[in-house]
Design a protein around this nucleic acid. Structure first.
Length: 368
DNA sequence: AAGTCGGGGAT
DNA sequence: ATCCCAGACTT
């Protein structure tokens, strides 16, 4: 499709020179072992560098080696991941580490086909880890590279189309300077992150501006072209802080797969969809239903106390979280099953939880 | 090809 | 309020 286009050696030289001069000093750029690069790439999927840095440091400190990762409990991984989102990434890290320990002698494989089959390794992560840590000649295609390529060659097809993705991957493959794959990949992504940004690209300082076709046409800011996403539905959801009078809060564990899989959460109940994102103040009905479900039909006589609302947006739907508090007497405290536990407030940091529940708890306990 | 899966920062 | 981010997996 774009077979006439290719990044020239001269352009690579300009870009590499720029990278040597301007590259950020990031924790995963020192000592590029496959393990260290892998953890960074897993965390960086759909996540900004600034967000990742503290998580990365904490993770490497807790689990400094592939062997340590392969022996870590899933709860430990979810705790280290708590707040980062896309928790299947954390679960897949453990799975892949165990496969490497059991089937590859604990050494990170070098064969791209083998790596690609590991849980959590798609085309991007396979190419990134192997090129950056082992110098394997594989070209990455991520959001940054897509943007830079579309602008550099003034490509205005819809990049969400599979055919266009394949053509861009082929262009990246063809452009790769063999023997310098890691540097090519990283400099291209760094350019996308620092200069060729989604809005307001800084073309004045771009090492590739002289040959940039979209800039010549004056439409670099309109690229890459992609179709708009569908509007997301919006629901109300009641959330319950059930306190046992001794500093304990009831948490439940979510199913191992799916949304927020394996994480602990406050008991909650999804309500009906909202037409508008603004609605009159929450009513107690949903909270009472929730309470009934928690106590399986015979809730305490006392009514829960309203704490507040919090809006939370996920990638494909939004929530208005309506949180309620109820302190129950010791005689009323229900037994907790295997997927439930009473957690002391001081222990909350040691539990893998979603960002929204952590915020609700922080707000509620702060106010006490 | 389309939907699922988090969360936060920039605009 | 919308978009975007060093994407992968399921259907």
């Amino acid at each position: 499709m774009y077979d006439t286009h290719c990044i020239s050696r001269g352009q690579w030289r300009l870009l590499h020179e720029w990278f040597e001069r301007e590259a950020r000093d990031l924790p995963w750029r020192t000592r590029r072992t496959p393990y260290r690069v892998w953890i960074s790439e897993a965390m960086l999927q759909q996540t900004r560098v600034e967000t990742v840095i503290p998580y990365y440091k904490r993770f490497l400190k807790a689990l400094p080696s592939l062997d340590a990762l392969s022996r870590a409990e899933e709860d430990t991984l979810l705790q280290l991941w708590s707040g980062l989102g896309y928790y299947s990434r954390a679960r897949n890290l453990g799975k892949a580490a165990r496969v490497i320990r059991e089937e590859h002698g604990g050494r990170f494989p070098s064969d791209p086909a083998v790596v690609r089959r590991l849980p959590g390794f798609g085309p991007y992560t396979t190419a990134a880890v192997l090129s950056l840590s082992r110098g394997v000649d594989l070209a990455v295609l991520d959001g940054n590279v897509i943007r830079v390529l579309c602008r550099l060659f003034d490509l205005d097809e819809d990049v969400s189309q599979g055919s266009v993705q394949r053509a861009l991957q082929a262009l990246a493959d063809r452009s790769l300077w063999h023997g310098r794959a890691g540097l090519c990949n990283e400099s291209l992504m760094e350019l996308g992150a620092l200069v060729c940004t989604p809005s307001n690209p800084v073309c004045e300082v771009c090492p590739l501006s002289a040959g940039c076709l979209s800039r010549k046409a004056g439409r670099q800011s309109e690229l890459p072209r992609k179709k708009k996403k569908a509007p997301r539905p919006f629901y109300r959801q009641a959330v319950l802080l059930l306190l046992n009078g001794q500093g304990g809060i009831l948490l439940r564990r979510r199913p191992a797969r799916g949304m927020l899989g394996g994480l602990w959460e406050l008991p909650s109940l999804r309500g009906e969809a909202l037409e508008r994102r603004h609605l009159p103040s929450p009513e107690k009905d949903l909270a009472l239903q929730l309470l009934a479900s928690v106590f399986s039909g015979s809730p305490p006589k006392k009514d829960p106390e309203f704490i507040g609302t919090l809006k939370h947006e996920y990638s494909h739907f939004g929530l208005r979280l309506e949180s309620w508090k109820l302190e129950i007497a010791r005689s009323v405290v229900r037994e907790s099953g295997p997927n439930e536990r009473w957690v002391q407030q001081e222990e909350l940091d040691e539990v893998g939880m979603s960002a929204s529940d952590r915020k609700i708890l922080a707000d509620a306990l702060q106010a006490r």
